[in-house]
Write a protein that binds this DNA or RNA. Sequence first.
DNA 1: ACGGTAACAGAAAGCGCTTTCAGAATGCGC
DNA 2: GCGCATTCTGAAAGCGCTTTCTGTTACCGT
Lengths: 372, 372
Amino acid sequence: MKEHRPERPAVHARAKTARPDAADGPDDAGGGAHVTLQDVARRAEVSLATASRVLNGTTQVRPDLRERVLAAASELAYAPNAHAQALARASSQAIGLICHDVSDPYFAAIARGVTRTAAEHGLLVMLASTFRDPTREVDYVAMLRAQRARAILLVGSGFEDRAWERSMSAELDPYVRAGGRVAVLSRHRGLRVDTVQPENREGAAALARDLLALGHRDFAVLTGPRALTTVVDRLGGFRDALAEAGVPLPDDQVVEGSFSRDGGFAAATELVRRGSRATCVFALTDVMAIGALSAFRHHGIDVPSQVSLAGFDDIPIVRDLVPSLTTVALPLEGMGERVMSLALRAPARRSRVERISGEVVLRATTAAPPKL
Amino acid sequence: MKEHRPERPAVHARAKTARPDAADGPDDAGGGAHVTLQDVARRAEVSLATASRVLNGTTQVRPDLRERVLAAASELAYAPNAHAQALARASSQAIGLICHDVSDPYFAAIARGVTRTAAEHGLLVMLASTFRDPTREVDYVAMLRAQRARAILLVGSGFEDRAWERSMSAELDPYVRAGGRVAVLSRHRGLRVDTVQPENREGAAALARDLLALGHRDFAVLTGPRALTTVVDRLGGFRDALAEAGVPLPDDQVVEGSFSRDGGFAAATELVRRGSRATCVFALTDVMAIGALSAFRHHGIDVPSQVSLAGFDDIPIVRDLVPSLTTVALPLEGMGERVMSLALRAPARRSRVERISGEVVLRATTAAPPKL
DNA sequence: ACGGTAACAGAAAGCGCTTTCAGAATGCGC
DNA sequence: GCGCATTCTGAAAGCGCTTTCTGTTACCGT
């Protein structure tokens, strides 16, 4: 007992001419196949080549034929097969973006810059989150290579690990050799590719100096995994600046956690447990700082009157925290644009490095140390 | 002179030499081309078909040939051309995710669920941010259709707009007819597709009841664009629940802004400017609530002692705010998983709807209204 | 030892598109 | 009115892969 529709809903319809083509083809079972250029050409009664030319505007085509092709295409709701195009043209419309976790505000902001810029160039972004698993990162590069992505963007800290570098290079090198473009954000040892590099050392050092200027002499640091270049750089810059002022950073005041809100919470809690006498805590990322802030509150420790807290990155939310977070500001979205642009630019003989400087923003989580 | 291979030069060689091949291939000019299956087959001295079979494990292949193919592939750092595969197999490895803005924590959390689930199925996610431009949304569907994405996920509120529905359907219908899978998150009028639908009405109503129970009688709402189904539902649910209790929601207590932190800030500021005497403000999304919280603080209005504030969504950050935000919790990441899974499931005759209920979480931004 | 069958390798036909390469039609000058 | 340059159009050759289909080879029972 099916519906007995008297007048068919004129598929796409300009006219009742409906679809002489689709109709006469008994194989149009609505089951599966996509409309092909062949179908369009047939319906417009022109050759495949002509149809292609019209749709791509490659060459002038006689106006009436042109019209017919356009009409046919729209009536059939034709959508070109990007795979066939990519194959024939030997180039695709997509780029790949690999980051640790899109839902982390740091990467989210960068991804925004990347996708916006990509969209401006008519490119589609294939997004991959590694969830901080180095193996997955390599796997994704392989997948993106298979997809013949125009460019592969590696966003996020690299690993200080020879084995990782090797397997990564094993994927990246053939890709680059075949004409693929690669750009990374953050320092990656051993990868000879274009890089957008935040000045982590300098930023952390500048922060240290400002914190010293506030009068602090007892510091603690909440770090991420030591294998990350970002950790090495930020921690190193901070420590060196302290050392320059003759202020030590004892090892037991450096607590390692994961680069996450919970990691920050845990690390700060550990610090409290150890009975640290630090008057100022530097969390290597804002996300960790958020966790730390929560942990301190949890333990009834007031920020900044009892302890000062600083982060790094200036993710959007931190200015709205109470108290608002002191941090080193990085133009995250802009960095996303830069890395995308870098990848799109003509390949250079030598790999380029674009340095992005951070700016210390003193907000409400830092103050002079409490008087003894 | 077939099998006359006295002793092949150990193609397979474990040799120390880094790239015995790249060196000997005189055509390997580093210029451009990718290694093809043809190259692999040639090097392994087998047919194209055999090479394909080995690499796909389609059929048993004599062990020695198998070995040779594998060795050749790895030596040449072969990466299959996904476009060619997609063309030949008539199916691709990618799905498309369209949302308003990846960097919005709401979408970021959902995207996380989607990408994680997709990864489990070996799928790549093509991400598109529309930046809230309905036109772009349609364009992206067209692009993803061209990419022959296995599924297209529309995440985010639909528009209550006939014209939009029509052009969207014009893209979606042929896609579905050709076998594409579509799933949406949030209510989309006029789109006959599988849906994951948060119970916005019910959630907002439940929130209203809890707020009434706290003693509030004067409410204000910070909304997003009225054309969004989410706005219609949340506002409607809230207003209805209020009406049921005999409490009115005057039109001048409903301020429209954009669904963003700044939109919330502006709307709240406007509310203050109007001299609203509301004791409780409902921001339709947490992101807006964050802006509102900031605006209130900015105007020296204490939350919750002077005014209570509630949001919706329970994005991860809001529990860490001070005061922590009362909201209606939605399992965001889970919703991402669900919508991905839904799209992967076999197509149904009728479009399915999965309802996700929200749960009111009373935190620190709400309290009894101030005594007069 | 022989026919019959199973197991496997290779040739070739596409998948849907772009893009030479010729050929057909048009315009022009003389 | 004829020849030639000038547009355009259509046939066909790929792009790199999968997958019949066909052909070998090897192995089984008797």
